[in-house]
Write a protein that binds this DNA or RNA. Structure first.
Lengths: 219, 219
DNA sequence: CCATTTTTTTAGATAAGTCTAAATTTAATG
DNA sequence: CATTAAATTTAGACTTATCTAAAAAAATGG
């Protein structure tokens, strides 16, 4: 069994590794789990002993197959709980992250299975992130950053890069929720800000480049 | 904020205090939380510093008002989660205890409120135990042990003393679930075992004294 | 009411996870 | 490529919650 702390490290490493199998640095992890680099080194030794990571001093780390499995299971639980909170308990999508950070550590395979059934075997969480299945497989849609979309193209919002409550709240206030179809009307060369219109509502919104590069869309 | 461990001690002390405000002994607590008495003494000092318990060396402990409040909140969460697991996720009543022991430590007042609403502001958990409200108040029904009921009386099963899965499973197998109306047909003097009949089903069951004194009933 | 048993507390250690400060390794740069 | 800067690890210490063994207090019972 793994402790809460170990699970959090594995999750952080998983996220830092991204798609590729690149090595993750001690400082990156320290930053992600909000602890001193020296503490991270200690934990890396421990996770290495447990065969959860590949670790060679000064060389960075990557997850082993078992490490990846654990990480994906935590992520699965996190996203299922987020969806539960939003769809069943009427939480807003910007409120659920911290609570899910607690719930993701509840140990019970049966509970996860039942929750999964209860929610109707969902494929995505309230932020548009895919929910891994029991085996760790998940849908990976081809998404683009809204900031990369050329003028006059119509796209659908399917996710966010930044998950902070304040950003999510800003999106809601601007009428930009998941699933919305939008058209890029005009991009300003100078600051790369965009004027976009929301389909079926004549409404148009002006968003900064900073915002646009945190919104994921599909064609 | 209190740690998981502190919460478990407070819950244990609350349960050991029972109705009265009697003092609870170190050994009783050690037994309840499954740790060595010496460890309990350490924790008692800590809880005393935090003004959660009244503690004088060698004299036993009792909860302060804040200690009781914390304990009741944990119990509230425990019972709400048990009910959630049974009514929403189709767990059996004998499966939920250990899982609720984990879930009861999730910190979020909002979550508790929402769960409470979601479950329809319930008054009792799946084992017939009352669920304290936000303020720590709960219904206390006048219940009796089935073992104390005289022959030919009709009573309703409203709870259990022993919460162990094996006992609960035995009850289910014998058709003795919460809410069932039963009549005590005959008590055997020798071993105090009972022959009882279940209303609306002609079925009669023979139960030992050990079983009868772990079933709570109302007249 | 004194001796023995039981209960409780103290003392000293251990393991997990963290820290700061110092040492070491790697990377970057003139 | 030698020196400085940055990243990483080691060393030593702290906190929380636990343990065992020994000491102290309370309870029991002839």
């Amino acid at each position: 069994m793994n402790s809460f702390t170990e699970e959090n490290y594995l999750k952080a490493i998983y996220k830092l590794m991204g798609q590729g199998d690149g090595k993750v640095s001690t400082n990156e992890i320290a930053d992600a789990v909000n602890t001193a680099p020296a503490s991270v080194t200690d934990m890396l030794k421990k996770l290495s002993d447990k065969k959860m990571i590949h670790y060679a001093k000064y060389k960075g780390v990557s997850l082993t197959v078992s490490g990846k499995k654990v990480a994906l299971n935590i992520i699965r639980k996190h996203r299922l709980w987020e969806l539960f909170l939003v769809t069943k308990l009427r939480f807003k999508w910007d409120e659920v992250h911290d609570l899910a950070e607690q719930l993701e550590h509840i140990q019970s395979e049966k509970l996860v299975q039942r929750l999964y059934q209860f929610l109707g075997k969902p494929k995505f969480d309230p932020h548009g992130d895919p929910i891994p299945d029991e085996k760790g497989n998940f849908f990976s849609q081809k998404t683009f950053l809204l900031s990369e979309i050329k003028d006059l193209h119509v796209v659908t919002i399917t996710g966010v890069v930044d998950h902070h409550p304040s950003f999510l709240q800003y999106l809601v206030k601007s009428g930009l929720s998941l699933g919305k179809k939008i058209k890029v009307r005009e991009t300003t060369d100078y600051d790369k800000s965009m004027n976009i219109s929301i389909s079926n509502s004549k409404v148009s919104v002006h968003i900064s480049y900073d915002v646009a590069k945190n919104i994921l869309v599909t064609l």
